[in-house]
Amino acid sequence: MRYTFKPDDCMVISIPLGSIRNVREGQLMPEKFTCVFKDAYKVFLRGRPKELGAAQLSIGAFVVCIGSLIAVEYDLNHLVYALPCALFIASGILTFAAGKSPFMPVVKLSFIFNIISLFWSITALVLCSLMGRQNDISNNISKEHMFVGLRVVVGVLCGFELILALVLIYWESKAICRTHFNTLPMITIKQDI
């Protein structure tokens, strides 16, 4: 026979029973017992979403600023990977808001934005490494070093965003992707001897 309901340890109820030998009339069941409920949102808060959201916001602002500087100074084609990094700013704001209040639609929206941020950070890393300079700046060696250095900084920041998005996707999936149906609380009855 297959069980249709299974305990999933989301709610653990422990009921200490009195000793059967020493029991008086109506004294077997206690008046108080403990119930531990593992809230999925509290599990999400262990991932420190406010701090990670602030880091995402900062990374997004830095990438947009540095990418705009590269575009203005060297070539406007570099805005292709710099301006869409404003998605990191929106993702950081949503992640911070999800960590601030237990409103599940905000957590779900943050989860979606973090998935998109993950894919965009991979795309931005590839575009940043493939796009070269269009203008002839080889005559000024310091300008050439500055261009390479700024692109390396943008690449490192996009790498950090990739890591942050992966971590946040993991913790947000703990809050969002959970079973709702066919689960019962785990009830433990302990008897004093």
Rank of each mutant, 00 (worst) to 15 (best):
I116Y: 09
I116F: 13
S117H: 05
S117M: 05
L118N: 09
L118G: 10
F119N: 10
W120C: 07
W120G: 07
W120M: 10
I122F: 12
I122P: 09
T123C: 13
L125R: 11
V126C: 14
V126I: 15
L127K: 04
L127T: 08
C128H: 02
C128Y: 03
S129Y: 13
S129M: 12
S129G: 11
L130C: 10
L130G: 08
M131P: 01
M131W: 02
M131S: 00
M131Q: 07
G132P: 00
G132Q: 07
R133E: 11
R133Y: 08
R133K: 03
R133T: 11
N135Y: 07
N135V: 13
D136T: 02
D136E: 06
I137V: 13
I137A: 04
S138D: 09
S138V: 06
S138M: 07
N139S: 14
N140I: 12
N140L: 10
N140D: 15
I141V: 14
I141W: 09
K143V: 10
E144P: 00
E144D: 09
E144H: 09
H145E: 13
M146I: 06
M146A: 13
F147Y: 10
F147T: 01
F147V: 00
L150I: 00
R151M: 09
R151V: 04
V152S: 08
V152H: 05
V152A: 09
V153D: 01
V156R: 03
L157Y: 03
L157F: 09
C158F: 08
C158A: 15
G159R: 07
F160Y: 08
F160A: 11
E161W: 01
E161N: 13
L162I: 09
I163R: 02
I163G: 02
A165G: 10
A165Y: 02
A165I: 05
L166S: 13
V167C: 01
V167F: 03
V167Q: 00
V167K: 01
I169Q: 02
Y170A: 02
Y170H: 09
W171H: 05
W171F: 15
